[in-house]
């Protein structure tokens, strides 16, 4: 177990180095930050001077070495646009994004799992087919359109929910939360629905597919043969055995939801990391972009490790990486 964790950690470090390298390479293609930092009337001389000041004229290996040196200490420098330490900006925005992602994930699980179970147990029922089709329509529209439609319906027409922002937030130490105020909770509804909609469909279909498979397996037949009730069979045995792949996917999806939050945050002006990143892209704010990429990668690597560990704990049959036969 310990050896497994150590090996896994070493691999994670390698992954992070690769991510840093790719993130760094990307900067060559995002545009010249100097243009958006200086007034239009700045002379060519001024532009050159600023480029030198930012260290953009140094040889690329030197720039990369400095970048890694800083990144290891969690230092990504000062944002070109906001003039604040990037680490502060990220820490400020992290709670907003994480609350959004977890709310969306919760929404997806609460909707997706029951719908999946239902459609698996009533395979050919009318409601099942309807659910399947509705869930598909939900993901056939680009999320930015869904978001605008949600705003149109629930903010403009019905006037029930706010169309932008996080509402009132409360500071708990460095963590700012919108979960403790009414306006904060109301503000969370539309964005998490928009972000979670795709996952609802994915989880529902996954649960359904796995359920159907498990229901055919011998051990379920035995359970039935033992005279257990349908209820016990379905929920005690079948559902529990479908949860492995669901855990995997849900875990993996958390990472991609953080990435997809970029779009949700843009539509709802949700002051999280995705919005920070999109602003950074349009201003070629390289320190912010690099920090975001490295952080998303880090979160992902951690989630991945946890998923692997869960595999290990939940299902010892798998003995991850231990079998060299």
């Amino acid at each position: 177990m310990l050896a497994f964790i150590v090996r896994r950690l070493l691999q994670a470090v390698l992954v992070m180095l690769a991510v840093a390298l790719i993130a760094f390479a990307m900067f060559r293609f995002v545009g010249d930050p100097v243009n958006s930092m200086l007034p239009e009337i700045a002379t060519t001389e001024d532009r050159q001077a600023l480029r030198a000041q930012l260290g953009l004229d140094e040889p690329i290996p030197t720039q990369f070495a400095k970048f890694i040196g800083g990144a290891v200490q969690g230092e990504f420098g000062i944002s070109y646009r906001n003039k604040r330490p990037v680490s502060d900006l990220i820490v400020e925005r992290l709670p907003a994004t994480l609350e959004l992602v977890f709310a969306a994930a919760l929404f997806a699980l609460l909707m997706g799992v029951p719908m999946g179970v239902y459609t698996a147990l009533n395979r050919h029922g009318f409601v099942s087919n309807l659910l399947q089709i509705i869930s598909l329509i939900g993901i056939s529209v680009p999320t930015f359109v869904t978001g605008i439609l949600l705003i149109l319906i629930f903010s403009v027409w019905l006037n029930w929910l706010p169309s932008f922002g996080r509402g009132e937030v409360v500071q708990l130490g460095w963590w700012s939360t919108g979960l403790l105020t009414i306006s904060g909770l109301k503000s969370l509804v539309l964005p998490s629905v928009m972000l979670g909609l795709f996952q609802v469909t994915l989880i529902m279909r996954l649960v359904r597919a796995e359920m159907l498979e498990v229901l055919r397996t011998d051990f379920i037949r035995f359970a039935r043969a033992r005279g257990l009730t349908d209820r016990a069979v379905h929920f005690g045995h079948a559902l529990r055995n479908t949860l492995m792949p669901v855990i995997t996917i849900a875990g993996l999806q958390l990472g991609s939801m953080i990435a997809f939050a970029i779009i949700t945050e843009t539509v709802f002006q949700w002051p999280g990391m995705g919005l920070l990143f999109i602003q950074a892209v349009s201003f070629a704010d390289i320190p912010v972009m690099s920090a975001y990429l490295v952080l998303v990668a880090l979160i992902f690597v951690v989630i991945n490790m946890i998923v692997d560990l869960l595999y290990f704990v939940v299902d010892p049959r798998l003995s991850v990486g231990g079998d060299r036969a």
Binding site: A12, A259, V296, A297, N304
Partner: peptide, 9 residues
């Protein structure tokens, strides 16, 4: 892991 760490965009 590396690939997944980068949004498609």
């Amino acid at each position: 892991d590396v690939m997944l760490s980068f949004p498609t965009i």
